[in-house]
Write a protein that binds this DNA or RNA. Structure first.
Length: 649
RNA sequence: GCCGGCGUAGCUCAGUGGUAGAGCAGCUGAUUCGUAAUCAGCAGGUCGGUGGUUCAAUCCCACUCGCCGGCUCCA
């Protein structure tokens, strides 16, 4: 303890190490204390859990830990500083561009500018080289605080009207700005110590974006970029982007002859080619089989219904912007269905229900049509006509939790079967535009959370993202490239039972109102198929592959044998083709590889002799010679276990 | 819907103010071959559509349809 004990603070490090230091010591100095220097790669500090600049003075006892790029907080700081540097480069080159916001995002950052014209690729190249100069100059980021009024003046003087608008929306009396020697930007921070800490930046694209994400506001010019501590990491990231492009379901869907979209049919409407349809059929068969096992009843419903039905359900009021225009038939308006629920409700209503009948679980692969604005359509992921793997469960209120829990088990079983093992789960609460009382919403949301807890599933809350009729659980899956996709959804609905006057007779002999649960496991077959194509890179596991094996005749002499072999497999229920063209086997193998057929069965004179085939696995693995019956067993195993294949390289 | 980019043969892409080319695929023939491309020949396009400028438009302009990247929205 020094004589001036008032000037000391206690520090605790992540490894439990304790020390004291003079009050006012910077976070960076504090982190350097144990070893005498700041560890490599430290760009900021976490002080009592909050990220701060290395230059930030410590005024009281603190738990302190270093922040590096490989921590989520570190990436945020790093990319945020990168965005500021880009903003400086843009201001240098285009002085009339106004700053708006520039946050870090999952894999990089963006900055939105108000500028008179869009930035061209040539502009981006210029901005990039200007950025390089700023990095080389290694200017420190300096934090400064000013009062709100002062800040408004400051930015007004500089013509930064968007910044003024932002500050006017703040409730704090003081705001912070960062000066990096050439640009002063409104910012909460923290930042890396100096511009030289950023090593590899790449600008990726420019695009229009509305101010504050509202289409009624002016359109700004957004530039996306990313940055990494080393060129090597940046290169690896760019390579990953290439890989994503290669796996794009629109590209593979065309190349592998799975699906097609056609101008003459209309945007967002999908043609399933025979091979795509074959995969879909396997998915649907699996789906039906599992639903029967899980206590669901399969139903079918029409594609149109009287508009009045949709008035009753509330769709015309709450969902109209997503529906196709009604059509008139014999002086009555009919509506193409955007959802299946009203039909399943009517199935429930088709007879009197007792409490003993509940839950009723109706499932349907129901094709719905939704009007999506032309700019949002995207391959199979966002379309105007799609098939939901829909189900509606009608139950007593006290059954919600167990029904939802069962659905969750079912969801995870199905997703695992398709090779998805990482999930993010969200509970979405009451949106602005909603029906039903606050209490009903709270109760239903509680039911969803209780079900998640009963299964030990971690989740986060997505405020205001529920559907108009009730709260929901959304499950996002992560594919092999680490991208998230929303598929499964479980939604509680206490509104439609009300609207349609659904009832069941309780033990007390009185009428009671059931609760309805909407759920989809895969979401839409189209989207799920798109995700599967990308997840497997088009190399489907054997049970899903459109063609499971090709028998390759080496010369014309083995043609009959090859056909007999293929037929033997076809009769056993497998999708096997014979390639008996007068081509060299090298070509046949190449084409089968390109078509991502799981197995190539080579048949030459030797194999004919032994009633065998020489098995080659997709990707080049030679599995040796097997008899026909042995390979049949192998195929059977792949298909019943739904495994067999190695994901594509 | 909004901002920007793009649209040439089945696919991937060259190209020019004077009505178009390549590779692959396709067809025909030859070849009969052991684990990712055998050879030769042939055929294939109203250059997305409509209108305009021009002696002349695939190229320039306008509109329109579609696609791509974003915004917004969602399964």
């Amino acid at each position: 303890m020094s004589e001036k004990c008032t000037a000391s603070i206690a520090l605790v490090y992540p490894d439990g190490h304790h020390t004291t230091a003079p009050k006012g010591i910077s976070a960076g100095e504090a982190l350097a204390l144990p070893t005498g220097k700041l560890p490599q790669g430290v760009i900021a500090a976490l002080v009592n859990g909050a990220a701060v600049d290395l230059a930030a003075p410590l005024e009281s006892d603190a738990e302190i830990r270093p922040v590096t790029f490989d921590m989520p907080e570190g990436k945020e700081v790093y990319r945020h500083s990168s965005a500021h540097i880009m903003a400086q480069a843009v201001k240098d080159l285009f002085p009339t561009a106004q700053l708006t916001i520039g946050p870090p995002i999952e894999e990089g950052f963006y900055y939105d500018f108000a500028y008179e014209r869009p930035f061209t690729p040539e502009d981006l190249a210029k901005i990039e080289s200007r950025i390089q100069e700023i990095l080389n100059a290694d200017r420190p980021f300096r934090r400064r605080e000013m009062s709100r009024g002062e800040a408004i003046h400051f930015f007004k003087d500089r013509g930064e009207h968007y910044k003024c608008e932002l500050i006017q929306g703040f409730s704090d009396e003081t705001v912070s700005v960062y000066d990096q020697g050439g640009l002063v930007d409104l910012c909460r921070g923290p930042h890396v110590p100096s511009t030289g800490c950023i090593h590899a930046i790449k600008l990726l694209t420019s695009a229009g974006a509305y101010w504050r994400g509202d289409e009624r506001n002016p359109m700004l010019q957004r530039i996306y970029g990313t940055s990494f501590p080393t060129q090597k990491e940046l290169d690896a990231y760019l390579q990953k982007l290439e890989e994503i492009k290669k796996r794009d379901h629109r590209k593979l869907g065309k190349e592998l002859e799975l699906i097609s979209v056609n101008d003459e049919i209309g945007p967002g409407l999908i043609l399933w080619l025979p091979k795509g349809a074959t995969v879909r059929l396997q998915i649907e068969n699996f789906w039906r089989e599992q639903h029967q096992k899980h206590g669901y009843e399969l139903v079918y419903s029409p594609h149109v219904a009287r508009l009045d039905l949709w008035k009753t359900s509330g769709h015309t009021e709450y969902y109209r912007e997503n529906m196709f225009a009604p059509m008139q038939v014999e002086a009555t308006d009919y509506q193409l269905k955007p959802m299946n629920c009203p039909f399943h409700i009517m199935i429930y209503k088709s007879q009197l229900r007792s409490y003993r009948d509940l839950p009723q679980r109706y499932a349907e692969l129901g094709t719905v049509y939704r009007y999506e604005r032309s700019g949002v359509l995207h391959g199979l992921m966002r379309v105007r006509g799609f098939t939901q793997d829909d189900a509606h469960l009608f139950c007593r209120p006290e059954q919600i939790e167990s029904e939802v829990a069962d659905v969750l088990d079912f969801v995870f079983f199905v997703l695992k079967t398709f090779g998805f093992h990482e999930y993010q789960v969200y509970v979405s609460t009451r949106p602005e535009k909603a029906v039903g009382s606050e209490t009903a919403w709270a109760q239903a949301t509680g039911g969803l959370e209780a079900a998640l807890k009963s299964r030990g599933i971690a989740y986060s809350i997505d405020p205001g993202e529920g559907v108009f009729y009730g709260p929901k659980i959304d499950i996002k899956i992560k594919d092999v490239l680490g991208r998230s996709w929303q598929c499964s959804t479980v939604q509680v609905d206490f509104n439609n039972p009300e609207r349609f006057g659904l009832e069941f007779t309780g033990e007390d002999g009185h009428a009671h109102r059931p609760i309805m649960i909407h759920r989809a496991l895969m979401g839409s077959i189209e989207r799920f198929f798109g995700i599967l194509i990308e997840h497997y890179a088009g190399a489907f596991p054997t049970w899903l592959a459109p063609v499971q094996a090709v028998v390759i005749a080496i010369t014309d002499k083995q043609a009959d044998y090859a056909q007999q072999v293929a037929q033997r497999f076809n009769e056993a229920g497998y999708r096997v083709e014979a390639d008996i063209r007068s081509e060299k086997m090298g070509l046949k193998i190449r084409e089968a590889e390109k078509a991502k057929v799981p197995y190539m069965l080579v048949a030459g004179d030797r194999e004919v002799q032994e009633n065998a085939v020489s098995v080659r696995r997709r990707g080049g693995g030679n599995a040796g010679t097997m008899t026909i019956e042995a390979f049949l067993e192998h195929l059977k195993h792949d298909v019943t276990e739904r495994t067999g294949v190695p994901l594509a390289q």
